[in-house]
Nucleic acid binder design. Structure first.
Lengths: 145, 145
DNA sequence: GTAACACCTAAAGCTAACTTTAGGTCAAGC
DNA sequence: GCTTGACCTAAAGTTAGCTTTAGGTGTTAC
């Protein structure tokens, strides 16, 4: 059993955030000793799932729904499986998006390295064909900045 | 030259968002014809950079700073290069984080597939050693949910 | 000439996820 | 017995990034 202060240190989360999560229903079965929250292994596991789902972009109210399903037992396995499959698709899509962003950023790094070496941006259009990653072609018709 | 409505369709952004970006200083050189915004190729390119920087997690006020630097010309190449290098590091870190999240999600997908097949979660602990990706070991001491 | 559009502004409103504030309980140490 | 420290609540406040509202302009179509 852990106090809220111990959990706060374990997860590097402010105490106020843990209380907020509790108020939002993310620890539906948490016990109390004369008013004081007793975090058990169950809540620790819940927090690991919370971090995962939050990291995948899920909102607090939907994480709460998941916690409700957990409490409902085996009748909700299908819903919970679906939730994680949707999360998988969402995270994979986000990673694809980040790859594109990264290609653009890498190009911009090259662009400013070159501009800095030359003292201006004027010769860059001529060098572009060799340096444009395919993701950026078509994006860069003209183009300072 | 494009109207705000045309740009809205090109970028799939609401007109209100474009006006908001303008108010926040993201199109510092935009021209007007009797009050009406004239989006040129310059603003189109600005929007591509905005999408990129936003996708990398940068806040609007910092994107505005970038636009100010662009207007200041060659004196700010170094700052702009640094900005994109910081973005590269941030996006790469975010992708590493997403990989971890994805490992956990994939494990959860497997977990619920198994629970659904078995009708309960009770036999899963015994199967764990073969199915835990390394990222999740140590995380999963006990653990339903 | 009037109705429909596409544009404009300023200001208020909204949402999520916290954080802060104000005030209170309780146990341990001096 | 009183102060310190860790816990508690309810409610108000904060921030980013929009969105909505209310009211106005200017051009084109009938």
């Amino acid at each position: 059993m852990y106090t809220i202060g111990q959990i706060s240190e374990m997860f590097h989360l402010p105490i106020s955030t843990l209380r907020y999560y509790d108020k939002e229903g993310l620890f539906p079965d948490i016990e109390r000793q004369s008013g004081i929250r007793q975090f058990s292994e169950k809540e620790v596991e819940a927090l690991r799932v919370i971090e995962c789902l939050k990291g995948s972009g899920l909102e607090i109210k939907d994480i709460k729904q998941f916690m409700v399903w957990v409490r409902e037992g085996s009748a909700t396995y299908a819903q919970r499986k679906q939730l994680f499959e949707d999360r998988r698709a969402a995270v994979e899509e986000e990673m694809r998006q980040l790859e594109k962003t990264l290609a653009m950023i890498r190009f911009k790094c090259w662009y400013y390295e070159t501009a800095l070496r030359d003292g201006n941006e004027d010769g860059i259009s001529a060098m572009l064909p060799d340096h444009l990653p395919p993701e950026i072609q078509g994006l860069y018709d003209l183009g300072h900045s």
